[in-house]
Design a protein around this nucleic acid. Structure first.
Length: 266
DNA sequence: ATGGCTGAGCTACTCAGA
């Protein structure tokens, strides 16, 4: 008797795109080259009805969008239709569009996929920083509640958090920055302590593995970057991760986003 | 040795990013 095993791999990527409308061709090339099944987008910088839905539909992708005029905005695009799209169950303290969630099967496990774009939080002595802190505290509460109901959760996005020293070129320059204050990094660890792993660090202990390079100060050419885009994967799903990598080459293209995508395979 | 940007909204700049 023949036994046939079907291995369904799912490739999920997360990319702060810094305007979706201006970078549709970059996204098109990336989806095709990397055979992405599900793409999380942050900083789409448009309202929901301005999202280039037809463009992605023609490439065979379904679009799910939580847009906002001018700033922020997140979206998920997916080859397969997605269920249980949610933009409301996480309450943003300033009513900005930084959250979208859905549910998919990963190796037959009903899995919550969460795409986030955390506030930057600079400068630290302003309400921007307190907004970031409040956002994180709300998010932790949201995840704790969710985790009681479902142990299969993947959180991906632009966290605007540098987790550790090795995730930035010159840590000493960043101690008072909202991306690296001890206070913010502790909140990040609090998410991990609920029951998550920083998936990239399961596969690499190397330094200088960055996902963002500023447009200014020759940051790209000098490789002065930050690792601030992450996938946090709940313990129960860790065994299902096949690979995770930063698609750094994307940052070297003409008129790129200042972020590179991070790609995880299940 | 040091490091000059980019996008949206709008039309002259400001705001925001990290």
């Amino acid at each position: 008797m023949w036994m046939r095993y079907f291995i369904f791999t799912v490739i999920i990527s997360s990319w702060n795109i810094n305007s979706v409308r201006i970078r549709t061709d970059h996204i098109k090339n990336y989806l095709k080259k990397e055979k992405i099944d599900i793409l999380f987008l942050q900083e789409i910088k448009c309202q929901t009805d301005q999202f280039p839905e037809e463009f992605f539909k023609n490439l065979g992708y379904n679009c799910y969008v939580n847009g906002q005029k001018s700033y922020n905005g997140v979206a998920i695009i997916s080859k397969k239709k997605l269920d249980k799209i949610d933009i409301k169950n996480f309450k943003d303290p300033n009513n900005q569009s930084r959250f979208i969630s859905t549910n998919v099967l990963i190796n037959n496990k009903s899995t919550q996929l969460i795409c986030i774009y955390l506030p930057n939080g600079n400068p630290v002595d302003t309400e921007k920083y307190s907004y970031k802190l409040e956002w994180l505290k709300n998010f932790i509460k949201y995840i704790e509640k969710l985790y009681k109901k479902n142990k299969n959760i993947i959180i991906g996005g632009d966290f605007n958090v540098i987790p550790e020293e090795i995730d930035v070129k010159n840590p000493e320059d960043w101690v008072d920055d909202a991306l690296y204050t001890l206070e913010i990094r502790k909140e990040f660890r609090r998410i991990l302590n609920i029951g998550f792993k920083d998936a990239f660090r399961l596969f690499s202990n190397e330094s200088e593995q960055f996902t963002f390079w500023d447009y200014q100060q020759g940051s790209w050419n000098r490789n002065k970057g930050l690792r601030i885009d992450h996938f946090l994967v709940s313990q129960k799903l860790v065994e299902d991760i096949k690979n995770i990598k930063i698609d750094k080459y994307v940052r070297g293209k003409i008129k790129p986003s200042d972020h590179a995508p991070i790609q995880i395979t299940f």
